[in-house]
Design a binder for these strands. Sequence first.
DNA 1: GTGAAAGCGCTAACAT
DNA 2: ATGTTAGCGCTTTCAC
Lengths: 337, 337
Amino acid sequence: MPRPPEKKRSNLRDVAAHAGVSVATVSRVLNASGRVSPETRARVQAAIAELRFRPLAAARAINSGRSRMIGALLPSLDNSTYARVIDGLEARLAEHDLSLMVARTGEDRQVELARARQLLEAGAEGLFLAGRTRAPALLELIAHYRLPAIMLAYWDPDGPIPSVSYDNVAAVAAAADHLRGLGHREIAVIHGPRATNDRTAQRLETLAALGDGLRYAPFETELSFAGGAAAARRIAQARGPATAALCFSDMLAMGAMAGFQSAGLVIPRDMSVLGIEDLPAAAATHPPLTSVRLQVQRMGEEAGEAMARWVETGERPAPLCLDCELIVRASTAPPRG
Amino acid sequence: MPRPPEKKRSNLRDVAAHAGVSVATVSRVLNASGRVSPETRARVQAAIAELRFRPLAAARAINSGRSRMIGALLPSLDNSTYARVIDGLEARLAEHDLSLMVARTGEDRQVELARARQLLEAGAEGLFLAGRTRAPALLELIAHYRLPAIMLAYWDPDGPIPSVSYDNVAAVAAAADHLRGLGHREIAVIHGPRATNDRTAQRLETLAALGDGLRYAPFETELSFAGGAAAARRIAQARGPATAALCFSDMLAMGAMAGFQSAGLVIPRDMSVLGIEDLPAAAATHPPLTSVRLQVQRMGEEAGEAMARWVETGERPAPLCLDCELIVRASTAPPRG
DNA sequence: GTGAAAGCGCTAACAT
DNA sequence: ATGTTAGCGCTTTCAC
């Protein structure tokens, strides 16, 4: 059956012709730049509406030299943490009429580099990066073009890229301190892949350097609920001395609770479990999860604001460190005996 | 302190001059179109490398009329479901050298329309849409421009937009059938906002129309772990007749398990809990969660492939319905007594 | 095999 | 207040 032909997208010239004005005038109406008489404006707007005209961002970008788009290179989306970060970033960028384009890196620095190039080809005016580790070529790229770049999720005030982040060292120290205060001495540490994730590595190094007399036994696993559960089952089966599990994320902690419970342990009687992040879910688990609250959404908002200012005014933001807070709930208690 | 000036991004002309050839030749090298002698090619490539040249996507797009970008309008990212969909979409699109740009709608049809316009201005060659409900203006836009659009997460073979989806009706029917087979008669249904989510509405209508003699009591809550937990506490406190909770997502089900357990109920002895989706976490919960497996990632892959074909060859894809499968685990059992 | 030149849709001087 | 025109960085005929 014959169908009506696809309508061509109309352009500035079409609109100008339709309204009986020049392209410059249409452009002025579009950008609210320069003076246009009310009658002309009305005529142009009518033409725009009638022709369903929408300016092509690519054409604007090529002229203005600005895409108004910022790129974010994040490890994964399968993770409510980064969903919350994105929320914050987008909200603030939108206030400055900037848009966000997200690419996933899977913690692979070569992928990160490749996706960064792609974002830059797409016109990204700045980049958000997670963690401190970079492919050298990416660092070089950023330096070469003086590209606005902000580092998330890793506090490092002295690096080449300004951090807007919570402080992993403080978070892990607060967690350890809480367990020590309760009387725990043998701690199982449940964490995601260390080799590829510098935040995890930094947290583990922090524990090792704490010198608080506690023993930390690391259990590496997949960074997910199922991974946390698997680690907990390993810990339970080993019948080791651990009386508490310090989990490097709430998702891990939730999985760990399920894993311990499957093994017949009662939390916190037989095992204390502690998370980091304080997801909205943490207050609703059984038992409610003690966790170190990271200001994840706020990190996104602050970083978004800082980036907007950077690309608009050229002023490089000062590093910003967000503090964390231990939220004590029912999943931690003194060890038995 | 004085810093070296920001380097300007080099363009085709710079490369051409540097290599001693014309811009046309550089363009040929870039696109592997037309014949170029090996020596010239080498010279051009050296110039490209030296000047760190990367073609600007906007400029290519404006000429070729193609952005090679597809937009996805999804309700939320704070939800591993859509993270899995995005995985699938991106993987297949990338195989065809197409990129994906995601925008969140929050199930708001006006937001969806606005974000769709934004994606189209950014040059999107096609759109992925979640669910069936649209702002009329968006439907009209799609029809007007014959815009490739694929509907996800709602099976409707007869709608104006081709579906690539699992079947919510079948999923809910499988869940209900399982509970009926176990002997349950009074079912609490835990679900997210009905008014804004047509998948939820369709599932509820399916249950109401089942005519299987079971009684379904709906409990609407926030679509999250915490929401599931809150609903479960309400159900437990009401001390109603429900012996099973049918949850419209695994996240809700995981929260519901925690909520019931907090209220002192033992699963499945005092309450059976059943989810829909079969997240990777479902097998690791305590007890392991019975769930209806939806092929979420596969939906993303199939939709990505269909879209790639559509924009490359112009052939509109046939609707595709993915089947679901009940995965019985330990969270469901016959009612007591 | 290579180059010159005409645009793509828009913005921004510069005229009027 | 409005129009004319020269580009932005690239692709793509069309000559040679």
